[in-house]
Nucleic acid binder design. Structure first.
Lengths: 327, 327
DNA sequence: CTGAAAGCGCTAACAA
DNA sequence: TTGTTAGCGCTTTCAG
């Protein structure tokens, strides 16, 4: 592979001039420029990012932290991130932590090591203490999961409000027994969605039954199946279920389908993943502007990199009503 | 951020010695080593990958090319890739081409630019001609989609055989009218699966009807819905359908469910994505060893990087029989 | 407008 | 065992 020296030699100019051509500096005569470009084509030259990055002390890579890519919820966000990143000449390094601290450490070190210029974290399982420390010296943005009143800028939706609206919708349909399939409440979004759930129940003077709240270990389909099975075994069965993730809701639908007699139970999910429109019945859910969240997260990060002040953003969500609540 | 010079100064040694400590070279006195380590901790030093990479002329990054991550089929493979890559001190750069040549070019340039040491392509839409040219100078491995008799090593399964077994299974269940929902036959896997489909039909002396073969634009659910709708409108409706992707098959199931009278049509998919077990009915499908494919792809790439001879690998698949073929 | 030269942070050959 | 030093490929200041 040719390097800048060889181009300079071939073109009969200095390396500085080649560099100027490469970087579209104005101060180059059209004639010299064409000489250089000729040499570049001749030798099939591609400037080495390794040299450039060292010199510029940047990697032009953005690290994207997420627990795993199996939840389709992340796909759309990533799409937005990638589009915006590429448009700004950045590449993304997709990092699945698998919720393992040792992996997280590897990735954090990459930032300290200059292998990434900034971080977008979508990982609810992230070690927030460490992330905050990292954020003191490096640009960091939170996407979706965030920290209330924390120092790291975030882009998210109002989970509490969304959950409130979901449950209110269920109650208005005549459901007085609404269960909640929640994930671990160590996550802020889980606490917020529970809070919205409770607010709606209180508003309608409905009792809050602890046996109607089930906490799952993770967001896999199977956890939704298991949760619903438990709820179906209760003496006083709920007539409606709000699951905090579409994956859980889809599992819940499955469990209902498997139940003898196919009880009629309304189900609502969260995220509006593409599957949610393929289930039978189709799933009522909350749509987040995932693509936009991804785009904004990158823009915020780029601002942060330029040391600009960055404000957090709360985006609008939308309740998508489908068959699963049309009993 | 501290650099190696400052550590050397603080520890009262040369930068070479610091480098030796960093790289676990043996020839360092325990005493000097501890001095250096002390300085490292003191200054919170992290070696810069930028400098190291330039010096070593490597980026320790593997580029993973795929059309998009929305198809869950890729998730598991990526998981395998990531695990093996990390174990070997490599990071992966997940690159969605969106089947756009301009994006592909960006990524190919990253390899030429030394921003990635090798490529694993899972993208059926890849420009094979360009990829082959890239492979002349850089390590490249194909995963899943490959080129028959081509020069690039691959890891895949026997798609023809799998399709043959699927259709044979359907025929043995009494289906004499088996339709095929295929993707674009510019992809090898599509041609192979069609070939297996035809082989089974011929073996049982069943007619090959062109109206029972539908080609989709992509693998989205919606394409499966549309394909099935077309098939349901035929005068002579098929009694069974083989879709070359679970996503298409799930769309087909949806279309059948939507049909008045809920016709009983057997459906088989391909890939065994986790959602295929959540549909109603659950989906009969072909399971590929996705995680293993990912791991092997990385191992093959690492071998290739060491200039070792690398042989292509064809892995075993498995027919997973579920409700969608149980009438 | 162009060139010479310094230097980004690191590793490794060579010397001591 | 440790230090000195060159140099990976690039950008940028400073001179001319």
């Amino acid at each position: 592979m040719a390097n800048i020296q060889q181009i300079a030699k071939k073109a009969g100019v200095s390396v500085a001039t080649v560099s100027r051509v490469l970087n579209n500096a104005t101060s180059v005569t059209p004639k010299t420029r064409s000489k250089v470009e000729h040499a570049i084509n001749e030798l099939n030259y591609e400037p080495s990012m390794l040299g450039r990055n060292l010199r510029n002390s940047e990697s032009r890579q953005i690290l994207v932290l997420l627990p795993g890519i199996s939840n389709p919820f992340y796909s759309e966000i990533i799409n937005g991130i990638q589009t915006t990143a590429i448009a700004n000449n950045y590449n993304i390094l997709l990092c699945e932590t698998d919720s393992k601290p040792e992996r997280e450490n590897i990735y954090f070190n990459m930032v300290k090591n200059k292998l990434a210029d900034g971080v977008i974290s979508m990982d609810p399982t992230v070690n927030m203490k460490k992330l905050k420390k990292l954020a003191e010296k490096h640009p960091v943005i939170l996407c979706s999961e965030y920290e209330k009143g924390g120092s790291i800028p975030y882009v998210t939706i109002d989970s509490e409000l969304a959950a409130y609206q979901v449950v209110k919708h269920l109650i208005r349909l005549g459901n007085e027994k609404v269960a909640l399939i929640n994930s671990d409440e160590k996550f802020l979004y889980a606490r917020l969605r529970r809070s919205g759930y409770e607010r709606a129940l209180k508003e309608f003077n409905l009792p809050l039954k602890s046996e109607w709240i089930y906490h799952t270990k993770n967001l896999d389909f199977q956890q939704g199946v298991q949760a619903m099975r438990m709820l179906l075994q209760l003496e006083e069965k709920p007539s409606a279920v709000f699951a905090v993730s579409d994956t859980l809701a889809i599992g819940a639908l499955k469990a209902i389908n498997l139940e003898p007699g196919h009880p009629s139970i309304a189900v609502v999910g969260f995220d509006n993943i593409s599957f949610s429109n393929m289930t039978n019945p189709t799933l009522t859910t909350v749509s987040q502007p995932m693509h936009q969240m991804g785009c904004l997260a990158v823009e915020m990060l780029l601002s942060k990199m330029k040391n600009e002040k960055v404000d957090s953003i709360v985006l609008e969500h939308e309740l998508i009503i489908r068959e699963s609540t049309m009993g």
